[in-house]
């Protein structure tokens, strides 16, 4: 039985620079993995490759037995890989509720005619279903009270949560979180750890997260991949990673 997602020899070059090279990785249903590495190691680039934002220059991405290479970001998202962004990218001037509804777009495919004949019951039925689903997602993240506020007016921590809610609205099987704890204080990070665990259980989704906060990564990830100069330096349990001399060298710099 093949894994949920596998990459083989994945790589991308910008000009002559190999941003990611020979990236071999796999994650299965329900796993919670971390992707760490020094700044500029290519972590976000890996996310961009997995979600189709960048086209790989070498290697393969196999998702549920099929190739993802040359699939559009839209198609990949609809196939069940969702993500958040390092620098939050919400639809700022849309309401919190509408942000989530955009994520629900492809799972409620009523057509243009239904939209135009909005006075017919099929429209209100579809919209009501979307509304209910979006609200229940917001409820999970304690965001329902903000449903009608513009996303831009939410406090920072709430914006991060809304981004996760929007990603979950696309009904993913694999969720990629890009530095979810960035800019959070220890208490907020603690809360986020609980949220991430809860998301995995409740939505039975595999999660791969990029994070610099070692407490979070070591605390919740089952396995961790360490990326350095675009290649996987080490892959293993938090315990193994902590004691891996290569990793320590990459992070602290080698003594000459």
């Amino acid at each position: 039985m093949s894994k949920l997602l596998q990459t083989k020899g994945l790589g991308i070059q910008f000009g002559g620079l190999k941003a990611v090279d020979e990236f071999n990785f796999e994650i299965d249903k329900g796993d919670l993995y971390g992707l760490i590495g020094p700044n500029g190691a290519g972590k976000t680039t890996v996310f961009n490759l997995l979600t189709g934002v960048y086209k790989p220059t070498s290697g393969r991405i196999i998702y549920k037995g099929g190739s993802l290479v040359n699939k559009s970001p839209t198609a990949i998202t609809q196939m069940g890989i969702a993500r958040t962004f390092q620098n939050i990218r919400l639809f700022k001037n849309m309401t919190v509720l509408d942000n989530v509804k955009v994520g629900l777009h492809h799972s409620h495919p009523y057509n243009l005619a239904t939209a135009i004949f909005r006075f017919l019951p099929s429209f209100s039925k579809s919209e009501a279903a979307m509304d209910e689903e979006a609200r229940s997602l917001l409820r999970v993240f304690d965001l329902e009270e903000f449903a009608d506020d513009k996303a831009v007016n939410l406090p920072y921590g709430q914006q991060r949560k809304l981004e996760i809610a929007r990603a979950l609205a696309t009904a993913p099987q694999l969720l990629l979180l890009d530095e979810p704890a960035a800019g959070m204080n220890p208490a907020e990070t603690e809360e986020l750890m609980a949220t991430i665990k809860m998301v995995r259980e409740k939505f039975s989704v595999a999660i791969l997260l990029i994070e610099h906060d070692m407490r979070l990564v070591m605390g919740i990830c089952e396995k961790i991949a360490v990326l350095n100069f675009g290649t996987v330096l080490a892959f293993g349990t938090p315990e193994e990673i902590k004691n891996n001399p290569d990793v320590i060298a990459a992070y602290l710099g080698e003594e000459e």
């Binding site: 559009s72 849309m94 919209e127």
Partner: peptide, 23 residues
């Protein structure tokens, strides 16, 4: 004011995020 409109507005707000929300 439909799912189509939300998709259209989301493109204005952030084209890349819109693509990655499956639009």
């Amino acid at each position: 004011n439909s799912r189509h409109g939300r998709a259209i507005i989301s493109i204005r707000e952030d084209e890349i995020a819109s693509e990655l929300a499956g639009i």
